[in-house]
Design a protein around this nucleic acid. Structure first.
Lengths: 187, 187
DNA sequence: TTTGTTTCGGGACGATCGTCCAGGTAGTTT
DNA sequence: AAACTACCTGGACGATCGTCCCGAAACAAA
């Protein structure tokens, strides 16, 4: 007989674990990876300091878990972005430009956090599979004969986002539009 | 009468300042921005700890100076890359792919450092002009009617580099070639 | 109820951090 | 030579860091 009701203790533990990961992501959005310490994360989550050391064997473990959680969100997010862009046909570029402007405007902190974690993965080999997964998922969405064009598209998106992060004021969808258009133009 | 011979003391000071910046860049290449402390930089440069606090009013100042120095190097570097690619005409893509493979292979640490400093600029407004300058310099190199294509090119380069940083083994020039080709193909 | 397991949290440890200070040294100016 | 300026450095301060320890509390199994 399989036990259907999970252990209440473990359930609470998992919940707090998730809360700590969320708090970590909020801190990275606000202060960057440099601002992540046991104490700042615990304070952000409203739990005692030692709670982080209990649920995560080290600070690195916490960052790893955060990246994995974040990468999953990114994958589904970009998945739907592509899906929406496709369903709008030739209006796809408009859709993409709008989403880029959003990522560089209201969601700027989140975008910075994602690229900081991305660079963290460049340094920590154990993080790379998680960081690479969403790229692979996306690549598998397209036909094989479009693969080069798609890789160019993804690279272009990354470049536009990174370059947009150092603008004093985030670029508007209208400014991004011609570049996205050029990027999507078939040849 | 203008004094031709500079103050020997200031000359030594400037020299050590430069050495500290170089040491900082080496540390970022090896351990990331997170590894930069007064003590690690001083040890890397082979000078006493307090030397960093004397020449740079704070750790932030040291990072700012390092980014500015690094950005200048990047600008001249990419400038010559573009120049070489142009002079080779249709072989430009080959040249670019080779340089990308080099940036992701032997010079991987340096590439990581550059993007870490880039993201630092996203968080610290006073760093943005320095980080943006080399982009502006490059943009001014092309004809106005090519500007969109050039922005796409630069964004694509950034994307390819960032994505290449999380590969377990750096991509070869041959693997990068088709993407660069597609990126440079006129339309 | 008793026993065992898991989560929780206060407190403290040594290490390392950024920064300051006060004196010492080398080079320039008068 | 004397006064001045700029660079150099050993030592130390308080703050914060990651992490450990150990008892308490909550919950499950017996």
């Amino acid at each position: 007989m399989v036990k259907l009701q999970v252990d209440g203790r473990k359930a609470r533990g998992e919940k707090r674990r998730a809360e700590l990961i969320e708090a970590t992501l909020r801190i990275i959005e606000r202060d960057g990876v440099a601002g992540v310490t046991h104490r700042t994360v615990a304070a952000e989550a409203g739990v005692p300091t030692t709670s982080t050391t209990y649920h995560f064997s080290s600070l690195d473990d916490l960052l790893v878990a955060t990246l994995i959680s974040c990468a999953r969100d990114m994958a589904t997010e970009v998945y739907w972005m592509i899906d929406r862009a496709r369903s709008r046909g030739s209006r796809g570029a408009e859709e993409v430009a709008g989403l880029l402007a959003e990522a560089l405007g209201p969601r700027r902190g989140r975008t910075m956090a994602e690229y900081e974690l991305y660079l963290l993965a460049a340094r920590k080999p154990e993080l790379r599979p998680a960081a690479r997964r969403w790229l692979d998922v996306l690549t598998s969405m397209v036909r094989h004969d479009d693969e080069v064009a798609f890789r160019v598209f993804l690279a272009g998106i990354d470049g536009l986002l990174i370059q947009g992060l150092i603008d004093d004021e985030p670029p508007s969808a209208e400014e991004l539009r011609p570049v996205v258009d050029y990027l999507l133009k078939p040849r």
